[in-house]
Design a binder for these strands. Sequence first.
DNA 1: CAATTTAAATGAACATCATTTAACAAAACA
DNA 2: TGTTTTGTTAAATGATGTTCATTTAAATTG
Lengths: 217, 217
Amino acid sequence: MGRRGEHSKSEIECMALEAAEAIIESEGYDALSARKVASAIGYTVGSLYFVFRNLDELVQRINGRTLDQLYANLIEALSDCRLPQQCIYALGSAYLEFAARHPHRWRMIYEQQPRDDNLSVDIYREKMERLYELIEIQLKALAVGPEEEVLVSARALWSGIQGIASMNLGRIPNHEEAQWAHKLSRHLISHYLVGMGTSEFKSVASQPVGQVIDYPK
Amino acid sequence: MGRRGEHSKSEIECMALEAAEAIIESEGYDALSARKVASAIGYTVGSLYFVFRNLDELVQRINGRTLDQLYANLIEALSDCRLPQQCIYALGSAYLEFAARHPHRWRMIYEQQPRDDNLSVDIYREKMERLYELIEIQLKALAVGPEEEVLVSARALWSGIQGIASMNLGRIPNHEEAQWAHKLSRHLISHYLVGMGTSEFKSVASQPVGQVIDYPK
DNA sequence: CAATTTAAATGAACATCATTTAACAAAACA
DNA sequence: TGTTTTGTTAAATGATGTTCATTTAAATTG
């Protein structure tokens, strides 16, 4: 049969990714299968393997897109705040909101990591690093302690927020659990900031107002 | 064929669990299969279904045992410390050590949660709660802030440590990464404790004990 | 001790899965 | 026109979880 030229290779690629994301979003990762994706876009299994080396490649592409969306949401969240402290709270909230809105795809980021493909691994690391940078920038703006301490702080805080999301969104979250996660997040951040000696109150006193931070990208 | 009485039902159960754990420990969860477990204990596939309703039940039994082992390790760690602050550090370290020593089984706890079985879900929750309690006890000993605050603190801290483990032990960890995780953990805990006004150093010095910050929103 | 019941264990069958392969059709190019 | 390249399919392969009719041996009964 082999009708041809209906869609370009990259069109099929895009259709497949969107179809797969739809399946994952509604039924979860376990419900994903090559056959299901193929039939959803009106093709057969083999065609998928013409576009993707294997299912893992498709999964990694989806993870890449999810990480990009997450990053975009975090950047977006930064537009509503000025003080570094506020920005850190905003980043935490935006992260939790994203995780609650897309629980399955969010879980995939951590659970379905690239098998051994070096290219995918590198892209992964880079996209993850970008997330850390967002908090690093805010911590640098607070300018407390030595430079290297900032790297540690950023990772500690970010890991903490990730852990909160992981605990509360183990399964599909209800609204109450989502609020609970936000509460934990604010709690953790505030205590951490006070521990750094940069709590909101302190900073208003000492931090120069109007200091503008430029975000990457 | 069908010779009988070689092993009791509970013996087979135990053998299967141990064989499955060995497979997971060395090859990871994805390498687990009913046939592999069966042949490892000298039986055939069908026999497994005589003991377990399905593979998920076997997985949940393993998770239960892992949670018990983790709990035992944490209790063990508490015997080396006296001050609540020290105990919290010790709990964090012990958790990270366990996660690094059994990365596959540790991941399973979070990734392979019970499908829908109500019994399994309840047991799960209970075993998880037990872990929280260990930190709650220490925080109560510090006796800072209202009672309800302790619940939040325990979960925030514990989630933070879990997040650190999750970030650093995404795959099989090398020794350097494990040390990095411990550093992050100590960092997070110490800042958090200072933020509570209960750190060893600072509480003596300046911070008024019990000062509570209100968070934005 | 022989007959019968019952529990234990098997291995084949089923449906589904990811992945590979060979065949084939249509477009592109000569 | 014929040849090559490219897109597409159907079928084949081998592994998976799960079910089930059947067989085997121990336990129980008469």
